[in-house]
Every structure is written in C-alpha cells, then in structure tokens.
C-alpha cells in the first residue's frame, strides 16, 4: 500500500510545487509562441447552401469520419464510439491480472497491453489517413497528389447474399470465441467463463473493424451482412 511505506519520500514543498510552476510557465510560453505564429482557422461565413469539399471534422473525430467510408453512419458515428467508451470504462473491471501496477511492463501483462496498443494505434492510423490522405469527396490522395486531379467514381462494390453474410459472421464470432480458449487455456482459466465472453466480444468487435476495411479494400465487399433493416 502506497501510504504505509514511508521510505524514500520527499516533501512536496518546494520540490513538486516548483516543478508544477515551471511546467506552467513553460507551457504558457509555448502556447503564446504557438498563438503568435499560427492563426486559428477561419473560413468564409457559414453558408448552408454551399458545402465545403471535403468538410473534415476536427482531427480527434476524423478517425470516425474515416470509418464512414466503410460503415453506415449509425455504426461509424454511433455504435463504434459508444462501444469504445463503454469498453474503456469496463477495462479495470475486466482486467483481473493483479500484476504490473505502478511500473511499465509488457511481460507481466501481455494480453492487456497488446490489445490496448493495437486498438490505440488503429485510432491514430484512421486519424492519419482521414486527416492527411483524404481529399475532395473523401477520395484517397497521397500527399504528393494534387487535389485538382479528379478521382474516378468509386470502384464497383458488391455484398454477399444474406445467408453467406450470416454464416460468415457466425463463423467469425464462434471461432473467435472458441479458438483462443483452446489455444490459450491459461487465459480462459484466469478470466472465467463470464469475463472471458465479455472480453472476447469486445475484442472480436474491435478486430471486425480492420477486417471489414480489408474486405472492402481487397475484395470490394460493401457490406458483410445485408438485411431489410440495417447493413453491417
């Protein structure tokens, strides 16, 4: 317990307070210089009759906007952020590995660190693509390509018939649920059935995002599952 251990402690006055003060001063200087050098963007006055092309969200939301290429708005803009936030909230209650508190370690927390870093990186990669590599009509442009060059209409997309979509999804979820439990017995035992199912559900949903992106890029698949009410 942190507070029973009185060895090697230092007074916060002045040691910590000085650090905080100097950090605040340094940050103020950085912000002032930044504000002097770079102006906040200001375009023409809002005009509902003329849309910007492309109209990009602020960078921290561009990842979600990028997902709009691959998913319908209710998934990209609603379900995915909702699932991300709920999953983040649940992390401390799902992770029952008591090791690796208060220091950086990979070896003691391989599972948690691996999947968190992958999810974290995906977020940044999507932001990078959306922010730097998307031009008019949200078409893909390399940095050295001019936005003036008009990109052709989107490639021909197709969706598998519903029975194939359902089969594929069920196969993915079932295998994804069962295989890790067989291959990594220790993981399953550590989590217990209930926790294991929740953790794997979250991870399977997370990995479905790059899978769907790859299916689209490699095989031109638009939706994995088409139904009357919604498409995935």
């Amino acid at each position: 317990m942190a507070y029973q251990d009185h060895s090697k402690k230092r007074y916060t006055w002045p040691d910590l307070v000085v650090i905080e003060f100097l950090t605040a001063v340094a940050l103020t200087i950085i912000l002032l210089v930044w504000a002097l050098l770079v102006n906040a963007p200001l375009l023409e006055v809002a005009n509902p009759g003329m849309s910007e092309n492309p109209s990009k969200a602020p960078w921290y939301f561009v990842g979600l906007q990028e997902l709009l290429v691959y998913f319908d708005p209710w998934i990209a803009g609603v379900m995915i952020p909702f699932i991300i936030i709920v999953s983040l909230v649940m992390i401390p209650y799902l992770d029952n590995n008591p090791r690796g508190i208060g220091h950086y370690t990979y070896s003691q927390r391989r599972f948690a660190v691996t999947h968190f870093i992958i999810g974290f990186s995906m977020w940044w990669i999507l932001i990078g693509i959306g922010y730097f590599l998307r031009g008019p009509n949200w078409q893909f442009y390399w940095p050295w390509e001019s936005w003036g060059a008009v990109k052709g209409v989107e490639e021909h997309l197709w969706s598998p018939p519903p029975w194939a979509g359902v089969t594929g999804l069920i196969a993915y979820l079932t295998l994804g649920m069962i295989l890790p439990a067989i291959i990594q017995r220790g993981l399953y035992r550590r989590f217990g059935t209930f926790r294991y199912i929740i953790v794997m559900s979250i991870l399977l949903m997370m990995y479905l995002v790059p899978i769907k992106i790859l299916l689209r890029l490699l095989f031109h698949i638009r939706y994995i599952l088409v139904t009357r009410w919604f498409n995935i």
Binding site: P41, L43, A46, N47, S51, S55, A57, F61
Partner: peptide, 11 residues
C-alpha cells in the same frame, strides 16, 4: 464559419 458549420453538420 464554413469550417464549423460543415463539421457540425457531418457530426
């Protein structure tokens, strides 16, 4: 401005 109007429209 146009930036804010259309970003909020998308969102």
């Amino acid at each position: 401005d146009q930036l804010s109007y259309w970003a909020i429209t998308v969102a």
